[in-house]
């Protein structure tokens, strides 16, 4: 039986800012027994437009994305937020266009966030990554509340040799990112973010992990600004053992 074709929806942030997360995700999906393909007709899930009220652009991007992955058995996304956009919100966009809605629903059924995919859809068992250190995990909002991602990343992390996970207070609280919110309402965002990083700093950990690069860039930016040693990485990097690049926002020479 040929291995299933898993299309990697890279997400715009990973594509632009941190390709190492994309390679980590690809390695994990392959380890789970799939063939990874990366359609180049993908750009962004459309969330910035969707959450700014630009329905027309959102729908164009949704159709572009849906059709980029027609030959895939699965669409795997290393972000809870983008996965929720594809899985939960795409079908709503076409509520008044039955044909497109059917297409969006069929697409949504194939979409899985990376950690959920590796635990529930194509179970990977033990992951290739090794990490001797203490980490804490931030549950990003969309993944947690729209897709119910809570135990999957933790189950996967429990198979990483040497890794010790300590939960931070209010792990489920928002980090204050919210896409354009962080720019438009910068000082409110900062207040929420400060609370988040303060909470993370109370636990004995050297790394914050999360499944969404947006939250991670937000937290990492605060921590480097404050000169705090706590670093941030995408959970896929740890699971795949993809640690060649320094943590998010850190200089190349630094090697935590």
């Amino acid at each position: 039986m040929p291995s299933p074709r898993a299309g990697l929806f890279v997400t715009c942030l990973v594509d632009l800012m941190r390709p190492s997360v994309g390679f980590a995700a690809a390695r994990l999906i392959e380890a789970a027994g799939c063939t990874v393909v990366v359609p180049d007709r993908q750009t962004c899930c459309g969330q910035p437009a969707y959450n700014s009220g630009d329905r027309a652009t959102t729908k164009t991007l949704a159709l572009q994305t849906i059709r980029a992955f027609t030959d895939c058995d699965y669409v795997v996304v290393p972000s809870g937020s983008c996965a929720a956009m594809l899985k939960v919100h795409f079908p709503h966009l076409f509520a008044s266009e039955p044909d497109l809605e059917t297409e969006a629903r069929a697409f949504a059924a194939k979409v899985h966030e990376l950690c959920t995919f590796l635990t529930n859809i194509c179970p990977i068992g033990k992951v290739p990554g090794r990490y001797s250190g203490r980490v804490t995990y931030h549950d990003s909002c969309s993944g947690l509340r729209e897709l119910g991602i809570k135990s999957a990343p933790r189950r996967l992390l429990s198979t990483v040799d040497g890794l010790q996970l300590t939960e931070m207070p209010e792990a489920e609280a928002c980090c204050g990112f919210g896409g354009l919110f962080a720019e438009k309402y910068a000082n409110i965002s900062n207040a929420i973010l400060t609370r988040k990083t303060d909470n993370a700093a109370t636990v004995d950990a050297d790394l914050i992990l999360a499944g969404d690069l947006g939250c991670l860039m937000n937290m990492a930016g605060k921590l480097t600004r404050n000169g705090h040693p706590l670093a941030c990485r995408h959970v896929a990097e740890i699971l795949a053992g993809e640690l060649t690049d320094p943590p998010i926002g850190h200089a190349t020479v630094a090697t935590p």
Partner: peptide, 15 residues
Amino acid sequence: GWLKHRDLPAPQGRT
């Protein structure tokens, strides 16, 4: 707004 309160992580180099 972002940079007022936090750094902006730099991209790794290529897409």
